[in-house]
């Protein structure tokens, strides 16, 4: 028996919007720790890892570990029927091949049940090693989204370079090239407007902008984004999901032939 009640149902709606472009089908795993997902895109260039900790749910019952295969586009269709202020409850019986999404309006005057078929998905689980990153950049998520969008109108790839001067995003294409430098800036009114650069050593990596733009679908989840870079490792682009967890996008770099 599985029953997860999330008062801030809009978080789940935003999570689905953030990952459904990148991943088509995925297994949602439920355990005592929380509700999680790990999936790669079809070309195995990017990986998304989601964790919503059990403590973040108003009610969290998971009698035994359960893996539920879902088509994310179909989950998104279901969740779009929930109001932004609705409380969302996920329910599944042991051995059942369906999951039920229950939507309750804040004043309890409307309660809806949407039952969705589960599917069998063969997915490989990857071990993500703990790593020391050469540079960690924390910046406003809207600013990062703007940079990725702007650069993708010029080129297909972005070079992200961190030096003591700041973080530089560069691209080049047929019509010309572009460089955007963001310097550390902590003298802001609100902490979420700060750009904070922690650098152990300079790092410069090249990534496909198409994927970066896809990651920025998570922007509505968090005012800030954290970009962790290490040479010879996938970049990690992390968005916090309120105080209950995170979405981490891993993207393999483009490397010299």
């Amino acid at each position: 028996m599985l029953e997860l009640r999330l008062v801030q149902g809009s978080l789940l709606k935003k999570v689905l919007e953030a990952i459904k472009e990148l991943v088509t089908d995925a297994n949602f795993d439920c355990s005592a720790t929380g509700f999680s997902l790990q999936a790669m895109d079809s070309s195995h260039v990017a990986l998304v890892a989601l964790l919503l900790r059990s403590e973040g749910f108003e009610h969290y019952r998971c009698d035994r570990n359960l893996s539920m295969g879902m088509n994310l586009n179909n989950v998104s269709k279901m969740l779009r029927c929930a109001g932004n202020d609705d409380i969302i409850t996920l329910k599944a019986d042991d051995g059942s091949d369906t999951v039920t999404f229950m939507f309750e309006s804040p004043n309890q005057d409307k309660i809806a049940d949407f039952e969705m078929k589960l599917m069998d998905i063969d997915s490989e689980h990857l071990g993500i090693p703990e790593a020391e990153y050469h540079a960690i950049v924390k910046m406003p998520s809207a600013e990062f989204a703007r940079i990725c969008k702007d650069l993708s109108s010029i080129g297909d790839t972005v070079v992200i370079s961190v030096t003591k001067e700041g973080v530089k995003f560069s691209t080049r294409g047929d019509i010309g090239n572009a460089n955007i430098v963001c310097r550390q800036n902590t003298t802001v009114d609100k902490p979420e407007e700060a750009t904070i650069i922690e650098m152990q050593e300079p790092v410069s990596l090249t990534f496909a902008l198409r994927y970066m733009n896809s990651f920025t679908k998570a922007t509505p989840l968090s005012n800030t984004v954290t970009i962790s870079l290490s040479s010879e490792l996938p970049v990690v682009v992390e968005y916090k999901v309120a105080d209950m967890g995170y979405i981490r996008f891993y993207l393999a770099p483009k490397i010299e032939d």
Binding site: M40, S43, H44, V45, A46, L47, E124, H125, L126, G127, I128, P129, T157, T206, A208, E232, L233, P234, Y250, A252, P253, K254, I255, E256, D257
Partner: peptide, 14 residues
Amino acid sequence: GCKQSTITKYFGKV
């Protein structure tokens, strides 16, 4: 030129 690497090059199956 630059070649796109894959996630499985860095992270192994568990």
